[in-house]
Design a protein around this nucleic acid. Structure first.
Lengths: 114, 114
DNA sequence: ACGGTATGCTACAAAAAAAGTAGCGTCAAG
DNA sequence: CTTGACGCTACTTTTTTTGTAGCATACCGT
């Protein structure tokens, strides 16, 4: 069952929305799922494939949670982001640039050490 | 042991930086830790307190991983974000606004249903 | 020097979450 | 009426996370 904002979550009794969000996103595959759906809607099986054959049990669990949190919804094409989900996914997308710089920095560091 | 960009991670063989990042951030407490450190440096124990007495085992594990990934570093005040870590934490901070809107929307929805 | 206290951290067992695999029920095409 | 795709559930094993105890070091006042 998904935790809704306003309710206490792991590590925060306050129910502050950001804490709920950090808790939800901190579950395995949640971020990845949002990322993949940011590329466009997908069916259950397509999503599994995109996520390296993640176990259907977990996929279904996450889809249920994200649906309860109104971040995704079902449509003819399978699952798709809602308006709010899209806004969040865009914020994730903006991490891509950062990640590349970060990787370049790490690589330089590793290279220097060897 | 932390996974570095360039290495395959859970759910992605490519080693794409963003995939590594999503994998790391998808571990419990990682996001929260970055968030808390975004508020300023903290000692091990202070961090534990801020994170609702998270178990020292896990805290230490995460700190080690984040250190290897060059997102945090040790200083006199305890642990602090590195330059890259700060940039990432700022991106997280920008989720706060989104989370508030999202929570308001959910609340309205719930209210309407009851 | 001596308890008292704080810190950073490790060890270990129990509980919870995730992974992996099989397969069911429905549908549509051949 | 068989075959194949789909969405999903059941069940077992493995991995992660928790919770609790406690050690070693360092400072503090007496």
């Amino acid at each position: 069952m998904a935790k809704l904002p306003g309710m206490p979550v792991r590590g925060s009794q306050t129910g502050r929305p950001i804490m709920v969000l950090l808790d939800v996103l901190g579950q395995r595959w949640t971020l990845r799922l949002l990322w993949e759906l940011g590329q466009g809607p997908a069916t259950f099986r397509a999503l599994r494939t995109r996520c390296d054959e993640v176990s259907p049990t977990l996929l279904n669990q996450r889809l249920k949670d994200l649906r309860e949190l109104a971040l995704i919804e079902q449509c003819e094409a399978g699952y798709a982001l809602t308006g709010h989900g899209m806004a969040l996914a865009q914020k994730l997308a903006s991490l891509d640039g950062w990640a590349n710089e970060w990787a370049a920095m790490l690589e330089a560091r590793e290279g220097a050490r060897d």
